[in-house]
């Protein structure tokens, strides 16, 4: 049984198909990269899986259960968590509190955070390299620190499946390498990862498989090197519309060596 299975998943905004008939399955323990040019539907797919949007048609199965149209907080209890494209820390709360919030809403009611919740949160801060500033105000962290905080917060929910949305955008090559190491460590904890990565800087390092989207449709899936040789994928990336020129230029710079 696959961990996550998408069955003819579609989402329509007005007259525009953001996603159309996506069929895909993630196996337990995998790291899968979700790639594609801007507007391909990557973040929309994440929003569907985490219950932020309701699909127009199709089904989402998680561990054999139908989770289509579940609400975000219910999805969390099934064991799916995510980070956001622009990281969204709880800016006026402390770093530690951010992670504790990820721990404590597990369904049963508790009045206060349990000491073990705080201990676990501190361990997660250790994992992402923020153990030295649990009391800092989250909104005052650097971009890279905020992304790591996002990750720790998402891990605090003890997910079986973790969706990472553009975690390395804007990172230096060194920071990308560190992030790749971190992702491997997360996988060793038994978490399956699904990674949106426009420029393939992270997914080419860590992914077992890639899923490529363009204009809301699946254009390829398979081993990273195979997918990158796929004609459709190359065309999708090179034929980027001119209104995205800034980003596509950057894409060529960083992702280009992969072609």
């Amino acid at each position: 049984m696959s961990l996550l299975r998408l069955e003819a998943l579609s989402k329509k905004f007005g007259e525009h198909w953001a996603l159309k008939g996506i069929e895909f399955a993630l196996e337990e323990g995998e790291i899968v990269g979700l790639v594609g040019p801007n507007g391909a539907g990557k973040t929309t797919l994440f929003n569907l899986i985490t219950g932020r949007y309701k699909p127009s048609s199709g089904k989402i199965w998680f561990e054999g259960k139908d989770i289509t149209s579940c609400r975000p907080h219910e999805i969390r209890h099934f064991g799916i968590s995510r980070t956001f494209q622009s990281s969204r820390p709880f800016a006026k709360m402390s770093v530690l509190e951010n992670v504790v919030v990820g721990r404590i809403f597990r369904g049963e009611f508790h009045l206060f955070p349990h000491p073990t919740d705080i201990k676990t949160a501190l361990q997660l801060l250790e994992l992402v390299g923020l153990a030295h500033k649990p009391g800092a105000v989250a909104g005052e962290l650097t971009l890279s620190e905020q992304r790591r905080l996002d990750l720790a917060r998402a891990l605090a929910t003890e997910p079986r499946l973790l969706l990472l949305d553009e975690v390395v955008a804007g990172f230096s090559p060194l920071a990308v390498k560190q992030a790749a190491d971190l992702v491997q460590r997360v996988r060793e904890r038994g978490v399956t990862l699904f990674i949106v990565d426009h420029f393939l800087r992270l997914s080419l390092r860590v992914s077992d498989r890639l899923l490529a989207l363009d204009h809301g449709e699946k254009i390829a899936e398979g081993k990273p090197q195979e997918v990158m040789r796929n004609r459709e994928v190359i065309r999708a990336y090179l034929g980027v519309r001119h209104d995205d020129e800034e980003q596509s230029a950057e894409g060529m710079e960083h992702g280009g060596q992969a072609f």
């Binding site: 985490t50 932020r52 907080h73 999805i75 956001f84 820390p89 709880f90 800016a91 917060r153 998402a154």
Partner: peptide, 11 residues
């Protein structure tokens, strides 16, 4: 601070 993130965390 962040309603969307909060709901994703189970709130």
């Amino acid at each position: 601070e962040e309603e969307t993130a909060a709901s994703t965390l189970g709130i």
